[in-house]
């Protein structure tokens, strides 16, 4: 990245240009959060459930955000801090955005990260990375409120069956995501099993003691146990 490109990509003008996109994300989340919190008690939840939802969501979100830091720093090298900030907060996923930057560079015929990156590349990357992700927003805007029809059909018209079928669908999702980390074999497999075993034991313990902190912190604790197990294995095998 040349000094000229770095100055352009990190200019206050780019920060100002990227701000509206992030602002709409926060605004939407704020409106829905406020409505959800205000109506929660009227829909049958109690204060304890609302506050524990907030705490556990906050605690669980921090870990994955830390994972994104290293990938975001890579994206900042190609797109500059403002646009990387927009892309990770607005219809973004770190893995897709890095692909988007690569596709933009390939399209122009330059090497990503090289001194060939200039304003023309940044403009191209801005269009490609943004354009590649609008499909999700369009699908969501058109069909989110109609997904209940899909649920009804899957439940055979019996809405009381929805949680049972929903659980089956989620087991399918998480089995697929987890198997992707088990095959092919590597150190991460131990993290998968250590996290799973820790969750199993913690859940059995919670069924006896019924402690709220286990429900709020359990996911994070088990995740950290998995990470520690993998790191220890890497230390023992000399991989670290």
């Amino acid at each position: 990245m040349t000094a000229e490109y770095k100055a352009l990509a990190n200019s206050w003008i780019m920060w100002a240009a990227c701000l509206p996109g992030v602002a709409i994300v926060i605004y939407q989340a704020f409106l829905i959060f406020r409505k959800s919190k205000n109506d929660a008690l009227r829909i049958g939840l109690n204060e304890k459930q609302v506050s524990s939802s907030i705490r556990s969501a906050a605690i669980t979100s921090i870990g994955p955000c830390l994972v994104m830091i290293t990938a975001m720093l890579a994206l900042m090298m190609y797109d500059g801090a403002p646009f990387a900030w927009l892309r990770t907060n607005f219809i973004g996923s770190i893995t897709y955005e890095l692909q988007g930057a690569q596709f933009a560079a390939d399209g122009i015929g330059i090497e990503l990260g090289s001194s060939a990156m200039d304003a023309n590349f940044l403009a191209t990357a801005c269009i490609v990375e943004a354009g590649g992700c609008v499909g999700w927003v369009i699908f969501s805007a058109l069909f989110s409120d109609k997904m209940e029809v899909v649920n009804e059909k899957l439940a055979g018209g019996n809405m009381l069956a929805v949680p049972i079928i929903g659980t089956g669908a989620l087991i399918g999702v998480y089995c697929s995501l987890t198997i992707d980390r088990v095959i092919p074999y590597g150190t991460q497999v131990y993290g998968v099993f250590a996290g799973a075993l820790a969750m199993y034991l913690l859940t059995l313990y919670d069924r006896k003691v019924h402690k709220q902190w286990i429900k709020e912190w359990g996911l994070t604790i088990c995740m950290i146990i998995g990470m520690i197990v993998c790191t220890v294995i890497d230390l023992m095998t000399g991989a670290l």
């Binding site: 996290g195 799973a196 995740m223 790191t231």
Partner: peptide, 21 residues
């Protein structure tokens, strides 16, 4: 260790769902 966060997270969440059914 951060490299192993997502595998550990998915293993944990998978077990959480498994225990429901």
């Amino acid at each position: 260790a951060l490299n192993y966060l997502l595998p550990s997270l998915f293993g944990t969440m998978c077990m959480q769902r498994i225990l429901l059914d």
